[in-house]
């Protein structure tokens, strides 16, 4: 038998050191939880089964998605994506403007500070009246909450751009637009990316909340309906699904960010 290379043990040991407590707690939960139909804390196995049944037990031709998943996922993620893109566009544009123009910053600062301080859920009832339960209500809610991290990060990023680089560009006769596109935007890119990632998290929270209030469509609506009909495993499955979504979105964003901004880290 060949001796194991010392490094061969490192990964399993590392994993064990990180995961033992989580596994222990999940195991304890599984063993002690009440598996009865009325239990508020069903064991993890019941939750995983419900997650599979409600969302992922569809035919292979539909990527194993159930009919409910096929109707809810596009709605929820459509809202999230539209709201986020809207917030990104508005936040970056406004951030560039305020970051480059001291005057615009002075004029708009107090109003923006007040708007930013309004907790987005406080506007949901208003949006419900104005937009009814139309798609626009969800998208506007998400965009209103998600725009602030993008705006603030863009602003900070633009202001931190090295003035020497801008002076150099001016000396070589670069125009204002070219300066914006070639120097300011790339310089602020890491900060903007961080803002976009935080905005995605905010957007997910507001997507869920607006669907919990709207109760007509989307993953959040399923969640609140499951709670009202005391279908506890389905409710937990919804929570687990949203947790999974949050984790996947964050991980995917980090992956893209690392790819696109590799030049920045190498500097």
């Amino acid at each position: 038998m060949k001796a194991l290379h010392p490094n061969a043990l490192r990964l399993p040991l590392h994993l064990a050191a990180r995961l033992w407590l989580a596994l222990l707690l999940i195991g304890l939960w599984e063993l002690t939880a009440d598996a009865g139909p009325g239990s508020y804390f069903p064991p993890p196995s019941v939750i995983v089964r419900a997650l599979h049944r409600v969302w992922f037990s569809g035919p292979a031709s539909d990527f194993f998605l159930t009919e409910q998943a096929r109707s809810d996922f596009p709605v929820s993620f459509g809202h999230l994506l539209s709201g986020w893109v809207l917030a990104a566009a508005a936040g970056i544009a406004l951030g560039l403007l305020l970051g480059r123009s001291e005057r615009a910053h002075d004029y708009l600062q107090p109003l923006l500070q007040l708007c930013r301080s309004v907790p987005p859920p406080a506007l949901i009832p208003f949006f419900v009246v104005v937009f009814q339960l139309d798609t626009s209500m969800y998208v506007v809610t998400i965009a209103f909450g998600a725009v602030w991290p993008v705006l603030l990060n863009t602003l900070a990023g633009v202001r931190a751009v090295d003035p020497v680089k801008l002076d150099t560009a001016r000396v070589y006769g670069m125009g204002r637009t070219a300066q914006l596109l070639r120097i300011v935007l790339p310089g602020a890119a890491p900060q903007i990316a961080a803002g976009l990632r935080i905005a995605l998290g905010f957007g997910l929270i507001l997507m869920v909340l607006s669907e919990l209030v709207g109760t007509t469509s989307g993953i959040g609506a399923r969640l609140v309906n499951a709670q009202r009909t005391f279908d506890i495993p389905s409710m937990w499955a919804g929570i687990a699904l949203l947790g999974l979504t949050g984790w996947l979105l964050n991980a995917a964003f980090l992956l893209v960010e690392n790819r696109l901004l590799r030049w920045h880290r190498e500097n």
Partner: peptide, 29 residues
């Protein structure tokens, strides 16, 4: 340290859950 390492995994697991998704559960409990 051992506890910190083990809890890091739990934090990374729980934190992505949007807190508002827990409202229905809290309403019941």
């Amino acid at each position: 340290r051992a506890l910190g390492t083990a809890c890091q995994a739990i934090v990374e697991f729980l934190r992505p859950i949007p807190s508002v998704a827990l409202i229905p559960l809290a309403l019941l409990v």
